[in-house]
């Protein structure tokens, strides 16, 4: 659809109401469309926003993973999306194939995904402390392809569904409908953000990681084990990614190759947020989610990703270091 549909949409509900008032037919079909039409424009917007927030929350969690690793190592970890995939696929495997209860499946999946992240760091990243950032990017791309390949081999190429955590009955909220799973997504995302904040600001190892992100050499001078902090950052990021994957999977379903696109979106969220491992990236994710959903609903569904990226480019041209980045914190 063209850009002009933006205006058309705003009036569409009015038009429809007018049309149905004429009562052109008595069939059940028309009745159902009358019911559908009763939703007005502001309700529509609420629906777009809620959809945007729920996808955005997932992007935020993935973006945080990017930011945490970037801040402690300077690496953009392109394998981040694969941990999201692992979260979903492992939960599917334990829950549906092995028949383990949901809560235990989730714990097991987080543990295995985190272990994968740690192993990846030990085998592929740590031996290369002196490599150029670009070589490290290639390594993470290689790792991403490798993990995806293994997942394809183990679970096949099919898409798999995971049951919702608690029921499929839609809930009504300010004229829009959401599923209980959306509440899980919002709740768990907020919980993780809070834990993340507490960890980085109040625990010793969290403070040490922040120190590393400001200045690695200085941190090691005051006795912080930088290598250990790097390992920690990979562990936290992969755990976070896997949680994002498993809370989203009941809505979005999962397969071996969902990680690529989600990883890119997460990267995008982190960039809008200025690579902060805090609230900036969270907002970045939400902005991206809402832009996509408004773009699809109001402008053009075909170009919705392009719209999101055009706005991203404009943001970068105006604020080259993300919206939420304070000017002075340059990290080289």
């Amino acid at each position: 659809m063209d850009i002009g549909s933006l205006a058309a949409n705003g009036f569409s509900w009015y038009m429809m109401q007018h049309q149905s008032a004429q009562g052109d037919s008595t069939s059940a079909l028309t009745l159902s469309s009358v019911k559908a039409v009763s939703m007005n424009f502001s309700h529509q917007i609420v629906q777009y926003l809620l959809s945007g927030f729920s996808t955005g929350a997932i992007y935020s969690l993935i973006g945080l993973g990017f930011a945490i690793i970037y801040n402690s190592t300077g690496i953009i970890n392109f394998a981040q999306g694969e941990f999201v995939m692992l979260g979903g696929m492992l939960t599917y495997f334990f829950l549906t194939v092995a028949g383990i209860p949901l809560f235990a499946s989730i714990i097991l999946s987080v543990i295995i995904a985190t272990a994968t992240g740690v192993i990846f760091e030990r085998l592929a990243i740590r031996p290369l402390r002196n490599a150029t950032p670009l070589s490290l990017v290639i390594i993470t791309i290689g790792g991403s392809i490798f993990i995806r390949g293994i997942a394809m081999l183990v679970w096949g190429k099919d898409t798999h569904a995971i049951p919702m955590f608690s029921g499929t009955e839609p809930l009504f909220l300010a004229g829009a409908t959401i599923l209980p799973q959306h509440l899980w997504i919002f709740g768990i995302t907020i919980l993780i953000i809070v834990i993340n904040k507490l960890y980085f600001y109040y625990s010793i190892s969290g403070k040490a990681m922040r120190a590393c992100s400001y200045n690695r050499n200085a941190a090691s001078l005051v006795g912080i084990d930088v290598r250990r902090m790097v390992l920690f950052s990979f562990a936290i990021s992969s755990a976070m990614g896997s949680v994002a994957g498993m809370i989203a999977a009941p809505l979005t379903m999962t397969s071996y190759d969902v990680g690529v696109m989600l990883g890119l979106k997460g990267f995008c969220a982190a960039i809008i947020g200025g690579m902060s491992s805090g609230i900036g990236t969270v907002l970045g994710g939400l902005i991206l989610g809402v832009l996509e959903s408004l773009g699809a609903g109001l402008l053009s569904s075909g170009y919705k990703d392009a719209i999101a990226f055009i706005i991203l480019l404009l943001i970068l041209f105006i604020r080259p270091r993300g919206i939420f980045r304070k000017a002075e914190t340059e990290r080289v």
Binding site: L29, V37, A248, K304
Partner: peptide, 26 residues
């Protein structure tokens, strides 16, 4: 109403919200 979605998209409620208000019968 003529909409599309990406092969890797995970949520089509925006398109469907729009369709719901388009007056389509199917």
């Amino acid at each position: 109403s003529d909409d599309t979605y990406g092969p890797k998209d995970t949520d089509m409620t925006p398109q469907l919200t729009k369709i719901r208000n388009s007056g389509a019968q199917a």
